[in-house]
Design a protein around this nucleic acid. Structure first.
Lengths: 233, 233
DNA sequence: AATAAATTGTGTTACATTTACACAATTTAT
DNA sequence: ATAAATTGTGTAAATGTAACACAATTTATT
C-alpha cells in the first residue's frame, strides 16, 4: 500500500449551493437565515462540509436535498472559492454549485424548517462571507449559459406556455424581449412538443401548453443558440 | 476568538495547471514526466498542494511559475475535481486552472529541468489520475471562450500578423477558416493596432504586424463576439 | 347578445450579418 | 521576366435579426 502524503495543512472543504427558482414573474433565490454559528442570525447560502465518503457532486446534491427534498435537479459547478480569510473561523475552501429548480415542486415545509426563504433576486439581502460574490457570479454564469443553451426550461413546470418562458428569460436578463421574435426563436429549436392543452389559468386568450422533447433536449443540449442576441454584456 | 470547526476529515487540496501554447502551427500543451512518486515515470500536469498562506489563484500562479518562470499570465479556473479515488494515495480535491502563454517567452531551461515537455495537443500522451479529463474539459472551455471573447491573443507574441492569428484559431478549433472573412471579423473588433512593420520571416508577401490596443482589450474583453460562428459544437 | 380590454398566434418587410467567391499586390525563386 | 505562394481588399447572394401589423381567443361589461 502507498504511503500517505506528508503534506500537513488543515484546509477544510465546504460546499455551497445557490438555488434559483422562478415564480412566474421574478427570478428567485432560496437563502437561509442561520440559526447556528458562525454568523448566527445572518443570511447565507445553504452549505456544508464535504464528507470523505462523497465526491463534490454528491456533496452538492446532498446539501440541496437537505434543504429542498429534491433529487435529479439541474446543477453545475460554478467554481471553487478560496480566499484565505473568506471564512473567519478557519481556512475553508468552498466549491460552489448552482441549481435550477421548479419552485412549485420542492418540499416547502422542509425548507421552512431549515429557515429557508425565497427572495426575489433583485431584493436579496446581504450575505455572509463571500456569498454575495458567489451569487453574482452565478447570475452571470446563468445568463451566459441560458443565452446559448436551452437551460431555462429547468426553472419551469413540466408543461408551460411560450409567454411563461419569455417572462422567465425577461426576468433572468432584466430586459424586455419582443414576443413574436422570441416565440419564433424558441419554436425553431424544435425542442418543444405541443401538448394540445391550453393554460386554463388565464383571464384572456389561453396560451398553448408545451413540454420538452426529452430526447432532443438531452441530445442537443450543447448545441449553440442565440436566445438573447441583444443583451448588453 | 472563534472556536475552530469540529469537522474532522482529512481531504487534501491540490492545484493542477494546464498550460496551453502555440508554436505557429499547432496548439501545444506543457506536460511533465514525473521523476517523483506517485506514478513516477508517467506523464502528468504540473501541480502541487495548496499552502495555507496562499489563495487558489496565488497557488496556481506559483505552480505555473515553478515550471515556466512566468508571471502576469492569462489564467482562469476551470473547476474543482473531487472524485473520491482520483488520487490513489489519499483523498485529494484538485482545483484546476488553465493558462495561455506565449510559448517563446517562457524559461525553457527551467521547464526542462523540471522534466517539462511540450506536446502537440493532438499527440498528448495518456496522463495520470483524472488529468486526461481535465485537459479535455480545458480544451472545451478554451474553445467556448475563444469563440466569444478575444482570448487567442494571449498565445501569440506581442506583435503578430492576422494570418498567424488565423492559424491559431484553426489549431484551436481544428478546422479551416475563410481567410477573408476571418480578417474582416478580427479587424472589425477594433482591438488591433497596425504597427507599420511587416513580418520579415516570410518567403512571399510579408504580412502586416499588429499589436493589441491594450486599453480597448482590457475594457472590452467581456464583450461578445462571434469569431467562430460555423464551428460545430 | 354585442362590445371592449387583454393576451396570444402568425405574417411581413427592412436591416444587418455571414458566407462564398474574385482579383490585384507583394515577395522570392527560377 | 515569369511562376508560385501568400496577403490585402472587394462584392453579391444567402441567411438571420429587428421592428412592426393584424387577426383570433377569452372574460368582463354594457
Amino acid at each position: 500500500m502507498l504511503q500517505k502524503y506528508t503534506h500537513d495543512t488543515r484546509i477544510l472543504l465546504a460546499i455551497d449551493c445557490i438555488i434559483f427558482g422562478f415564480d412566474g414573474e421574478e427570478l428567485k433565490l432560496l437563502l437561509i437565515k442561520r440559526n447556528f454559528d458562525p454568523e448566527k442570525g445572518k443570511w447565507s447560502l445553504m452549505g456544508g462540509f464535504l464528507n470523505e465518503t462523497e465526491d463534490l457532486e454528491e456533496g452538492a446534491k446532498r446539501v440541496l436535498n437537505e434543504l429542498t427534498g429534491l433529487e435529479n435537479v439541474y446543477m453545475e459547478q460554478l467554481q471553487a472559492f478560496g480566499e484565505i480569510t473568506r471564512d473567519p473561523v478557519e481556512r475553508t475552501v468552498s466549491v460552489c454549485f448552482f441549481a435550477l429548480i421548479n419552485i412549485h415542486a420542492h418540499d416547502s415545509e422542509l425548507s421552512r424548517s431549515m429557515n429557508g426563504y425565497w427572495f426575489n433576486f433583485k431584493d436579496k439581502p446581504d450575505l455572509i462571507f463571500d456569498h454575495n460574490k458567489m451569487v453574482n457570479m452565478a447570475l452571470s454564469q446563468l445568463r451566459y449559459k441560458a443565452a446559448l443553451h436551452p437551460l431555462g426550461f429547468e426553472l419551469l413546470p413540466e408543461k408551460f406556455t411560450i409567454p411563461q418562458l419569455q417572462k422567465l428569460y425577461e426576468a433572468i436578463y432584466d430586459m424586455h424581449l419582443d414576443r413574436r421574435n422570441f416565440s419564433r426563436k424558441i419554436i425553431s429549436t424544435g425542442l418543444l412538443i405541443d401538448t394540445g392543452e391550453k393554460n386554463e389559468n388565464s383571464a384572456t386568450k389561453k396560451a398553448m401548453l408545451y413540454q420538452l422533447d426529452a430526447e432532443k433536449y438531452k441530445n442537443n443540449f450543447n448545441d449553440f443558440h442565440n436566445f438573447i442576441s441583444d443583451f448588453k454584456w
